[in-house]
Simulated scan of single mutants.
Amino acid sequence: MNLALYGVTLFLLTLSYFKDKNKTKKSLKKALKSFENILPQFLGVIVLVGVLLAVFNPETISKVIGNQSGWIGVLVSGIIGSVTLIPFPQPLYCWKTEQAICRLQPLYPPS
Rank of each mutant, 00 (worst) to 15 (best):
M1W: 07
A4S: 10
L5T: 00
G7K: 07
V8A: 08
T9R: 04
T9D: 05
F11N: 03
L12N: 01
L13C: 08
L15D: 08
L15Y: 12
S16V: 07
Y17E: 06
Y17F: 14
K19W: 14
K19V: 13
K19C: 07
D20M: 07
N22H: 12
T24S: 04
K25E: 13
K25Y: 11
S27T: 13
S27Q: 14
K29M: 11
L32G: 00
K33T: 08
S34K: 08
S34I: 07
S34W: 04
E36P: 01
E36H: 09
N37P: 01
I38W: 05
L39M: 13
L39V: 10
P40G: 03
Q41F: 15
Q41V: 12
G44V: 00
I46N: 04
I46L: 09
I46T: 09
V49K: 03
G50L: 05
G50M: 03
V51M: 04
V51P: 07
V51Y: 03
A54R: 09
A54G: 01
A54D: 08
V55C: 07
V55N: 00
F56T: 04
N57M: 12
N57S: 14
N57L: 06
P58V: 05
E59W: 09
T60G: 00
I61S: 04
I61W: 02
I65D: 06
I65L: 03
Q68K: 15
S69Y: 03
S69H: 02
S69P: 05
G70Q: 07
W71A: 11
G73M: 06
G73K: 01
G73Y: 05
G73C: 02
L75Y: 01
V76W: 01
S77D: 08
S77C: 08
S77G: 06
I79A: 05
S82R: 09
V83K: 08
V83C: 07
V83S: 03
T84D: 04
L85W: 03
I86K: 06
I86P: 01
P87G: 04
P87M: 02
P87C: 05
P89Q: 11
Q90A: 12
P91R: 02
L92D: 14
Y93P: 05
C94K: 15
C94W: 10
E98F: 14
Q99D: 15
C102A: 07
C102S: 10
Q105T: 10
P106S: 14
L107H: 08
P109M: 10
P110E: 15
S111W: 14
S111P: 14
